[in-house]
Amino acid sequence: MDTVLSKGVFSHFGLLEVQARNRLIRPQQSSRVKELKAEVAALKIKREQLKAEIQTHKTLQKLRLSVDKQSIDKEVEEMEEEFADTELLKLMAKHSHIKDLIYAHHLLGGYNIIKTNNDKAVCVSLATAYEGFYLDTYNLEIDLRSVLRISHHNIPPFIPLNSLAEQSNIQTDVKAFLELLSLHLNAYAGRKQQLKLVKEQFKSVEVMESNTLCTLLVLMFTASTKRTPVLCTLDYSDHTKSLPTRVLFECEDSDLPNSPEWKEHCSLLMETPVHKALMILRNVGDII
């Protein structure tokens, strides 16, 4: 009877235990477990995605190298069997190759031609740079119908656009015109940048005068000997260059500009960009 009773009690307990598990305890306590399991699953998916991305990237790198070398590697040929998406991957490699080449054209200062207005006009960009600094980019739209005509542009008004177009015969040779215009714009950008650098780097040099095209620059600095102020005029009459065509020193001490030292400085300023020439003069201690 005892054993029966105990059995009965135990089996009753057992039943209760199952019920309790199902009804009371399980839902509450396992929600945390569920959450964690879901997180594990999510992380595993992310891991697989990352692995796939890395694998794809590696494959693309290999393919790109072979596209850029313009030869098909053995390795790349063998890939055919390995991946189901080889064809798509090859197209992706080609896509990135062309995209990078277009970007490279842009970085090297290409004209960046874009057709506009139903192919009746083209937009051309002219990049300017000076000593590693990319400066302003100018744009012009050329109307291609019968007579070539510049319809819109943002070239500064002091650049003689129309006379350059005439001079280079835009009607027959657009490239020659763009080349000449680019030469003028870059020379201007170079002179402007030099002026900016002079203002930034030389607090003791005063810019007395300059014009918008930056073809005339009058500076005042102090000669170290006797602390005499010197007026230095730089004349850039060749607008396709960023070096002056004439340099003139004026000073109360009239002997100074004629001294061999300052004659040398004069030719230095003729051959060296002004900010660099001033740096040299300051380093040798001839100006303050």
Partner: peptide
């Protein structure tokens, strides 16, 4: 993009093979 690249190449007079 290929058409664009052809235009750049022709106009810029520079052929790029790799970047």
């Amino acid at each position: 993009m290929e058409e664009g690249l052809r235009r750049q190449t022709q106009m810029n007079g520079i052929n790029l093979d790799s970047c």
